[in-house]
Design a protein around this nucleic acid. Structure first.
Length: 253
DNA sequence: ATGGCGTACAGAGTACGA
């Protein structure tokens, strides 16, 4: 089974690239973040024509998540239960016996902002919920844009990023607590080349200079981690004309 | 130097991302 996460930064703009990517890679499941579309405008017909079913939870301008899959999705949840949030950042579904949890975790903006506190509170609620989900679904994958680089290796310049949002200690500790609830960072199951990232700023020629961060992740329950064969970041997608600033991350198990 | 670029909404300039 091939499972993918990709922050597309507007599905309206990136739809042709998403369709091309589906045709080229034929994943079983593709989780999207930052669709930036109200549900009424979701391009379900075009995606259906490409052979994929869709579930989605979006809003105007910001956020928005979707799951594209070859087989049908059930047990759909669009929010962390009991956590009130008007921002559409969560979509969970069961597909082919795998519990898929697609997340667009808050960015946090800067460590002294209200948005940073919202991010930390959100992560706490998420971890409590995922502990329950793991108990119900031994075959579980949590994937998405986490907006956290967990380790020095995941940052092009850890000294410069120290204490900054996306790499601050409280965020990394929250990520670790999430992992400690019973999940494995699939990327680190395998020997990986150095300086592999999933996001590069549009500015400052960051991509050309490989000034990136690894902030998009696929975390697997023990049962899925044991049979995981690979975790790859498709840097090629970031080279496209008018690319998303994120690259797709793909696991196979 | 708090910029740089890209997207959305709007119809110019601001908010936001990461």
């Amino acid at each position: 089974m091939k499972l993918v996460t990709w922050n597309v930064n507007s599905l309206k703009v990136r739809l042709p690239q998403v369709l091309d990517w589906l045709a080229a890679h034929q994943p079983d499941v593709l989780c999207l973040q930052e669709t930036k579309l109200e549900d009424v405008n979701f391009p379900a017909a075009a995606i259906s024509a490409a052979g994929y079913q869709t579930v989605f939870s979006g809003q105007k301008t910001y956020n928005g998540v979707a799951i594209l899959s070859k087989t049908s999705a059930s047990e759909i949840i669009t929010a962390i239960p009991g956590y009130a949030d008007v921002q559409k950042r969560v979509l969970a579904a069961t597909i082919a016996g795998v519990r898929v949890i697609n997340l667009y975790i808050p960015n946090g903006q800067s460590v002294d902002s209200d948005k940073y506190q919202y991010k930390l509170g959100w992560l706490e609620a998420l971890t409590a919920w995922l502990t329950d989900e793991l108990a119900c679904h031994p075959r579980l994958a949590v994937l998405g844009d986490f907006n956290i680089a967990p380790d020095d290796r995941d940052v092009h310049d850890p000294k410069a990023w120290e204490g900054q949002v996306l790499f601050s200690l409280p965020e990394r500790e929250a990520f670790q607590r999430l992992v400690d609830s019973g999940l494995t960072d699939s990327f680190r199951l395998f020997e990986q080349p150095e300086k592999i990232y999933s996001w590069w700023d549009y500015r400052m020629n960051a991509f050309r200079r490989n000034m990136g961060l690894r902030i998009d992740h696929i975390l697997l329950s023990g049962e899925l981690a044991r049979t995981c064969k690979s975790c790859i970041i498709d840097k090629e997608a970031r080279k496209a004309e008018r690319p998303s600033d994120h690259a797709p991350v793909m696991v196979e198990f």
